[in-house]
């Protein structure tokens, strides 16, 4: 029962969406648009509460049991409730200037800072990983040098051919490979979805199924 009901629901909902995707059946099209797709939004919104509870529970437990670095849990919970209450209580909620100020001073800057770390990590991973160990690795290295050089003005200043070679590599080698990836990924997604739909894949319903 615990597995059968979700499987039946999955099959019914998925089958309706497949019909909606291919066929002009007004009842199906209307039902899919008006109810099924919006039910996804509703269930996701409801699930947001689960995430909040999980965070609160974990950090309250950190504090009460005085786990390592429990002091940071105070800070996290403080900011969590501050933003939650501000967003609900303030006039115009999340478009309130004070809320916007806190958001753009903390959240936005921190996100941008962490994203910026990726450039440093890229440099260190390139230094470590790009070794001409084999013919393929050497070709990859040479292509990388051309693409990196050709995508900035300094490359063109050193040699006018860099941008041309870079564009050729991106247009003919990279784009065709990306298309192959897309085709493979789409086929895999299709297969995975059909497996979920007909109940062959039940790993998400019960932990030990599927190896």
């Amino acid at each position: 029962m615990r597995r059968t009901v979700p499987m039946v629901l999955t099959f019914c909902a998925g089958f309706i969406m497949v019909l909606d995707g291919f066929f002009n059946i007004s009842f199906i099209n209307g039902f899919a648009n008006r109810y099924l797709m919006r039910s996804v939004t509703l269930s996701v919104a409801w699930a947001a509460g689960i995430g909040a509870l999980n965070i609160v529970r974990l950090h309250v437990r950190n504090i009460t049991t005085k786990r390592t670095n429990y002091q940071y849990s105070y800070i996290l919970l403080g900011f969590f409730f501050f933003m939650l209450i501000s967003g609900v209580v303030l006039e115009r909620h999340t478009t309130n200037p004070f809320y916007q100020f806190v958001y753009s001073s903390f959240q936005a800057q921190l996100s941008a800072a962490v994203f910026s770390l990726s450039s440093f990590y890229l440099a260190s991973s390139s230094y470590r990983a790009f070794r001409a160990r084999s013919l393929e690795a050497t070709l990859l290295l040479v292509a990388a040098v051309f693409v990196i050089s050709g995508s900035v003005p300094m490359g063109a200043a050193i040699w006018s051919g860099f941008p041309t070679v870079s564009q050729w590599l991106m247009k003919y080698i990279n784009d065709s490979t990306m298309r192959a990836f897309t085709i493979g990924s789409t086929m895999g997604t299709l297969s995975q979805c059909v497996r979920n739909l007909v109940g062959i894949e039940r790993g998400h319903l019960r932990g030990s199924e599927g190896g």
Partner: peptide, 25 residues
């Protein structure tokens, strides 16, 4: 790489039905 992620359940279980789905794919 790409589809190899979707192969996991068939590969790890060696289940005939899942391998058949991969073959269809």
């Amino acid at each position: 790489m790409v589809e190899e992620l979707y192969v996991a359940s068939a590969y790890l279980s060696q289940d005939r039905l899942r391998i058949g789905m991969l073959a269809a794919q």
